[in-house]
């Protein structure tokens, strides 16, 4: 564990807490893409198949349970909670994400570290996470102004993988045999997808104005 990875995990945790706060405090999920939440639930379920077979550390196990639990809870809330579900932007959140799921799974069948059930699903989860934010970014552009908590949620979600890139650079420099190309390339793509969001987020912060994404 190094400081970059810890910062990345904490930033990721903060993004989840901000989203839970927004939904719980405002009893609303307006501006949040259910499809991105469902993609993230798939990412965590596919990535943490080793939850019960490989014990790495208490921290690792607890964080996996937190990410799986929170993503499923948010999906449940947005689908079935009688108050929250009414504020879901159903007509704006129309990204056909099964194309993304199919493409990522196909890529994982071709490109993986080892051809085993767990490794293919791990690679699938890495590729899927890289594009999981797309429905959310499309929804933000369609829904015009973005409320603060939603903007912060997306910001932290994007920042966490940027910390992971620093972690991979650090590990590459300090650990003799560390190579993880699948994570690194996907992590770069994932972070690059946030580039324009980060730009408009910075502008809104600098001008102390509402976050506006161009349609």
């Amino acid at each position: 564990m190094n400081i970059f990875r810890l910062a990345g995990d904490m930033t990721h945790l903060i993004s989840v807490l901000v989203l839970l706060l927004k939904i719980y405090a405002t009893k609303s999920c307006s501006g949040i893409s259910l499809k991105t939440q469902e993609l993230y639930a798939m990412v965590f379920l596919a990535r943490y198949l080793d939850l019960f077979s490989d014990f790495i550390s208490l921290y690792n196990t607890v964080m996996k349970l937190v990410f799986i639990g929170s993503s499923l809870a948010i999906v449940w809330c947005m689908r079935y909670h009688r108050v929250v579900r009414r504020s879901y932007d159903r007509e704006l959140d129309t990204f056909r994400y099964w194309i993304l799921v199919g493409a990522c799974f196909t890529l994982a069948l071709v490109l993986h570290e080892k051809f085993s059930f767990q490794e293919v699903f791990w690679a699938f989860s890495i590729y899927l996470e890289a594009v999981a934010i797309l429905p959310q970014l499309v929804l933000l552009q369609r829904s015009g102004n973005v409320d603060n908590l939603t903007g912060q949620y997306v910001f932290f979600l994007g920042a966490y993988r940027a910390f992971y890139i620093l972690n991979w650079i650090y590990r590459y420099l300090t650990e003799p045999r560390f190579t993880r190309w699948i994570s690194c390339v996907s992590g770069l793509v994932q972070t690059a997808l946030y580039a324009d969001f980060f730009y408009y987020y910075f502008i809104s912060w600098k001008n102390n104005a509402k976050l506006q994404l161009p349609a």
Binding site: R5, D9, H12, D50, S53, D54, F55, I56, N60, M63, K64, F67, E113, W122, Y164, N167, R180, S183
Partner: peptide, 10 residues
């Protein structure tokens, strides 16, 4: 089972 599996990251 404790492993130092390459997948030690979240």
């Amino acid at each position: 089972v404790i492993t130092d599996s390459a997948k030690d990251e979240l």
